[in-house]
Every structure is written in structure tokens, then in C-alpha cells.
Simulated scan of single mutants.
Amino acid sequence: MIVTHPTSLIKAVEQATTATDLIAAVQALAEARLEIGIPTLIAVLGYNNPAAAVIAVNGLVQLGKVAVSPLLELIDDYNYGARAYSIRALAAIADPAALTVLLNAAATDFAPSVRRAAAKGLGGLRWSQLPPEQVYPAQAQALETLLSVAEDADWAIRYAAVVGLQALATSKSFTHDLLATQVSAKLDRIVQTEPDLSVKARAQLAQQQLDKCVGSQLEQPSEGGSA
């Protein structure tokens, strides 16, 4: 069995001279799941090689929580493509430490791809990782941003906001009735007034999933009750 030294995997990425070599090197580094390789994987996000970037995103997601702080620290303010990939990785890892970055990206980033990725990611954060007293305020922030983004002029961003709203409202940690009512009312309004058929259809699907989620909660026996 051949064991490749971690620094060799990193150098292979940095020294790749063709797109094919770069993809192979990034794949090898991602599969190794090395914490020391995280900055290199993040750098690949800005290499203008979509195939390599997707592999790097998947590698970062596999590394999970240890990749969150480096991703937050190394987000590229100048390369929106790299920034979009970083946001996609943070959204997939779903660590609530990324909440502030996702909120700002969804609401204010000039790049539509970044805003879409952030909006989708906002709803799917692992809220249970927060202290209990922080869950409701954090979810309220996410909801406020998603409700605003759902009014965007770009249909694709509105679509992403609907995806985020569904993920938020169907989360096991999303139990506050007031927030759930706001999501339901917003989805109803989108279904009634949305001019884009894709967004309207996605809102209808979100409604169905939310209704199913509420129904399953109602079917659960109350504390002390019988099944």
C-alpha cells in the first residue's frame, strides 16, 4: 500500500499545470480528508476550474465542522465565483456559526449565485447546535431575511428563498408557532401572486411539505398520552 505524505498532496494541487492534473490532485486531497489541506481546498474555489471547485466543496463538506472557521475567515470578497462555492460549502455543513455570513450574503451580496446559495442554506442550519436560548432569535433572523429575499426581482433568488423557507419551517428545531404562521402566510401569498410558474410551483410544494410536517406533529402522542 502506497502512503502519500500530506504535503505531497497539497503540492500536487499547487503545482498542477493542466486542468486534468488539477482535478486529479484535488480529488486525491479531498479524499484524504486532511485538516491541513483545508486552506488549499478553499484556494481551489477561486481557480476558475468548476470541476475542481465542486470536488473541493465536497471535500470541505466531508471535513465538516473543522472547515467552518477557515471558510469564514478565507471567504473571497473579490471573486464572487469563489465566494459562491464557499457559501455552498457552509450551507451544506450547516453549522450555525455561519449564520451571520449567510444572512449578509443572502440580503446584500451583488452576485446572484451567492445570494441563491445563502438563501437555500439559511433554512437548513443545524439549529440544535445552538444553546436553547439562542435558537428562536437566530431562526427569527433567518426568517426575516428569507421573507425579504422572497420579494427579490430575480425569480431564481425568490425560488431559493422558498427553498430556504421550507427547510426552516420543516426543521425539527423549528417549533415556534408565530414563526411557522409567518412562513405559511408567505407561502400562501406567493402561490396567489407569484408571476413565475417555477417559483409558484415550488411554493406549492413547500406548502405541501409544511402541511405534512404539521400533520405528523399533531399525530404524535402528547406527553403522558397513549399512542
Rank of each mutant, 00 (worst) to 15 (best):
A52M: 12
A52P: 08
V54F: 05
I55L: 04
I55T: 06
A56M: 07
N58A: 09
G59P: 09
L60V: 07
Q62F: 02
L63C: 02
G64F: 03
G64A: 00
K65E: 14
A67M: 02
A67F: 02
V68D: 07
V68H: 04
P70S: 07
L71D: 05
L71N: 04
L71T: 05
L72Y: 05
L72N: 03
I75S: 08
D76Q: 10
D76S: 15
D76C: 10
Y78N: 14
G81P: 03
G81D: 05
A82D: 10
A82M: 11
A82K: 06
A84W: 03
A84R: 04
S86K: 10
S86W: 06
I87D: 08
I87R: 03
I87S: 11
A89L: 11
L90P: 13
A91H: 06
A92W: 03
I93S: 06
I93E: 04
I93R: 03
A94Q: 07
D95T: 09
A97D: 11
A98P: 13
A98M: 11
T100Q: 14
V101R: 13
V101T: 15
L102N: 13
L102C: 13
N104V: 07
N104M: 12
A105Y: 03
A107M: 06
A107N: 06
T108K: 08
T108I: 10
T108Q: 14
T108D: 11
D109H: 12
F110Y: 09
F110M: 09
A111F: 12
A111R: 03
P112Y: 05
P112H: 03
P112E: 07
P112V: 08
S113K: 11
S113E: 12
S113Y: 00
V114H: 05
V114C: 12
R115S: 08
R116I: 08
R116M: 15
R116S: 12
R116Y: 08
A118P: 13
A119R: 00
A119G: 14
K120P: 00
K120Y: 09
K120H: 06
G121L: 11
G121I: 09
G123Q: 08
G124V: 08
G124N: 12
R126M: 11
R126F: 09
R126T: 12
S128T: 15
S128R: 15
Q129L: 15
Q129Y: 13
Q129R: 15
L130N: 11
L130T: 06
P131E: 02
P132F: 02
E133H: 13
E133K: 11
Q134Y: 07
V135D: 01
V135T: 07
Y136R: 14
P137Y: 00
P137S: 05
A138N: 09
Q139D: 03
A140G: 00
A142E: 00
L143R: 01
E144N: 11
E144K: 13
T145D: 10
T145V: 15
L146D: 04
L147K: 13
S148C: 06
